[in-house]
């Protein structure tokens, strides 16, 4: 079998991988992009519109993949790397398709998974059909299949984030603003329904987020209740009865809703299997720990292996693309010095 030779292998064809591939190609590096699925785009494919401006998510994916096509950057679809070992300064990667790839550097753009809330049983996911995740809601919004005229929908923040009970202490960063975005979309879908966000903290930290929150309140009349959902049961009419504490009013609250959306958090995607000699340090939340989070955010503990996008922690799409571009600089720098 012939060994394919590249300077850089990018693992993961999401927005991070695609952005990095284009940048690296521009700087003259011989690069290949590897994606496990049938199509490029990664998690962003699961989104209908993105915050804060309701731009269709497909636009972003299409724009990035068109660049790849234009530059004729090699892409291996439906390929996942099963094993990586180091060989005199280079890396040998083996894929499930049987390919062997030798590369000087590896850029990990494996991204994230969303939290599976079935372990958080008290929220009723997988038990009551009207409890769904934010990802499932995006699909329904996209295909316009979210049932008929619910009277009230609640969105629960921090499901699988900031929760010691599911061993996930980190904040997933995007769920707060995603919830506000989805609340507005739901309100536009069902103008007569009441849409309620149940939050612990609202982290509207980036440009346009706070404005979106304001809009949600003023233009769309989204209700915000500060309290963490503690349990969800059914009444006789098979509506969902939520028990929460309205911590600002200082009173316990019973709330009947037709649909419950769980804003599932981000958790690290599984990395390819590395040879024992390769050590990739991880942070406590399971994502890759950068060598220096301020000055070298894309360098891992293993020289020649880099990370970008949500591989090193939750990020927005915008941050992911910037991070991917910064990673390509770090990779070029490494290749030049070699």
């Amino acid at each position: 079998m012939t060994t394919l030779k590249y300077q850089t292998v990018i693992i993961g064809g999401g927005v991070a991988g695609m952005a990095a591939a284009t940048e690296l190609h521009k700087s003259g590096s011989k690069v290949v992009l590897i994606e496990g699925n049938k199509k490029l785009g990664g998690q962003v494919n699961n989104w209908y519109k993105v915050f804060p401006n309701f731009r269709p998510a497909s636009e972003i994916v299409n724009s990035l993949s068109t660049n790849l096509l234009k530059d004729k950057i090699p892409v291996l679809l439906e390929t996942s790397i099963t094993h990586i070992e180091s060989n005199s300064g280079n890396y040998i990667l083996k894929s499930n398709q049987g390919q062997v790839i030798e590369a000087e550097t590896v850029l990990l753009a494996t991204g994230f998974n969303t939290f599976d809330p079935s372990g958080k049983e008290e929220y009723g996911y997988g038990i009551y059909p009207n409890v769904l995740t934010s990802v499932e809601l995006e699909q329904r919004l996209k295909t316009n299949t979210n049932g008929i005229s619910p009277k009230r929908i609640a969105l629960v923040h921090c499901v699988g984030s900031r929760d010691e009970k599911v061993n996930r202490l980190h904040c997933s960063k995007v769920c707060c603003v995603s919830a506000v975005k989805q609340a507005i979309e739901l309100k536009e879908f069902y103008p007569n329904a009441e849409i309620i966000c149940l939050y612990m903290d609202l982290r509207m930290y980036d440009n346009g987020f706070e404005e979106l929150y304001r809009d949600a309140q003023l233009q769309h009349n989204i209700k915000f209740i500060r309290g963490r959902l503690s349990e969800c049961a059914l009444n006789i009419e098979k509506d969902l009865v939520l028990k929460i504490q309205d911590t600002l009013a200082g009173l316990p609250m019973k709330l009947t809703v037709d649909q419950l959306i769980l804003m599932v958090g981000k958790e690290a995607h599984q990395l390819p299997q590395f040879d024992e000699s390769i050590i990739i340090e991880k942070a406590s939340h399971g994502f890759i720990k950068p060598a220096d989070s301020h000055l070298n955010p894309n360098t891992t503990s293993q020289p020649g292996i880099f990370c970008c996008g949500t591989t090193s922690g939750p990020k927005t799409i915008q941050e992911t693309i910037s991070d991917a571009r910064s990673a390509s600089l770090a990779v070029c720098d490494y290749l030049n010095k070699k």
Binding site: M200, D201, R226, G227, R228, L229, S230, E231, K243, I244, Q245, D246, T247, G250, P252, M253
Partner: peptide, 23 residues
């Protein structure tokens, strides 16, 4: 404690008497 109130909402005793753990 960050006063999220989940404890007070789920409280069994709180349903029959005043008891709000986060408070």
């Amino acid at each position: 404690c960050i006063s999220c109130g989940a404890c007070s909402a789920t409280c069994t005793g709180g349903a029959f008497a005043k008891l709000e753990m986060h408070k």
